[in-house]
Amino acid sequence: MAELLSIAKLMSKVPEIKAIIGDQKPEYCYQCAKCTSGCTAAKVVPEYKPHEIVAAVKMGMIEEIMKSGILWACSECWKCSEYCPQDVAPVEVVLALKNIAVKMGYRPPEALVEMVKNAIETGYMQGIMEVMTNEFEFVDRDSLGLPKLERPPNMEQRRAALMRFFGVVMK
């Protein structure tokens, strides 16, 4: 049987994790499932249940959750954080697990990798698109009379400062 991985064990494996994920208290959860009852993702992905993810974390089944890829179904609507009576906020646990998964070498969905790359290379996550109106007229900031936006300075330095966070993802 695979070795179970608790948050405490993870900290010794990936030392920067505590700083990355902030304060997590999954052990406060008493499985009322209020989070799952209001969960956006759970309404269309029946196997996604935030209270079960928190339970699995308490049992030390962190690697199993990461391997399943189920974490990426969370739409980050933050409803669970409002409903949770125990201040666990499953979305925060899920976000922490996403961060840890990336640090451990699990590749996030390609669309996310693409956006992170865009942000590092150009400063923007979304590329500039050609925009057409309902009258079939092409418009942009200039033609709509909007001021030009100044790009950020020192992009090279910025890239270097960011890359140290992203080693694994960008490979």
């Binding site: 980050e76 996403k98 961060n99 923007y124 966070f165």
Partner: peptide, 20 residues
Amino acid sequence: MKGATCCPEAQFMEAVDRRA
């Protein structure tokens, strides 16, 4: 705001690296 970039969007960037 001169030189502003993507905020960046939490659903993508926070999920991949909270520090960045």
